[in-house]
Nucleic acid binder design. Structure first.
Lengths: 96, 96
DNA sequence: TTAGTTTGCTACTAAAAAGATAGCAAGAAG
DNA sequence: CTTCTTGCTATCTTTTTAGTAGCAAACTAA
């Protein structure tokens, strides 16, 4: 699955997240996402652009329509992960 | 997101996929998933077990209830990725 | 018991990916 | 021209991932 191969990379998903509201320049992304070097950042931005999930114009980087669609798919995971963490903590308190 | 940190690991998702039908032993998993060393395989199995997504009994490794729930969430991505790949190939034929 | 298998796992080492630092080139603004 | 911002990358170090080889426990069969 090529999609997951893209999202799997460190900072990939994080950068998408940062762009949900406003377009940001690469330097703005770098300072908002504490502790990421420009090397890694630009590597991810290039990959996400090649995947048509983000776009780059005079305002900076922003999500494409596809990028926004993808984000919709990710939402259910937020809900489920709460349920999941609950299971984990219960199990760990029982078993050590 | 701890969940994604787990699934992000190489072979993590692939191993879950292999277990959707039947329980498999670690050696069966290794031969079904061509080209994975036992080191990596067992590392992933350990992580997935700690995350309560798979379980290990006398029949081998199998998905837990949580593991199956998670798989339900992943299904929409299969559909969407077709749509995504379509966009990518259109774009690439236009732009080279 | 002993020899042979299967299964789960792990040391050890090599290869690949990620990361940090430093700095360049293009464009805008003064 | 100088200064600043932005996008990007070459180089090097660190961390992750991968491959080989092999061990120990459980099981089978003689």
């Amino acid at each position: 699955m090529a999609l997951f191969d893209l999202l799997r990379r460190p900072r990939s998903l994080g950068n998408l997240w940062q762009l949900t509201d406003n377009p940001l320049t690469s330097r703005e992304l770098q300072s908002s996402c504490e502790s990421v070097s420009s090397t890694v950042l630009n590597r991810r931005l290039k990959e996400l652009r090649a995947g048509l999930l983000i776009d780059h114009d005079s305002h900076g980087y922003e999500l494409t329509e596809m990028g926004r669609e993808l984000f919709g798919l990710l939402e259910p995971f937020g809900q489920w992960s709460i349920h999941w963490v609950d299971h984990l903590s219960k199990y760990r308190s029982e078993q050590g």
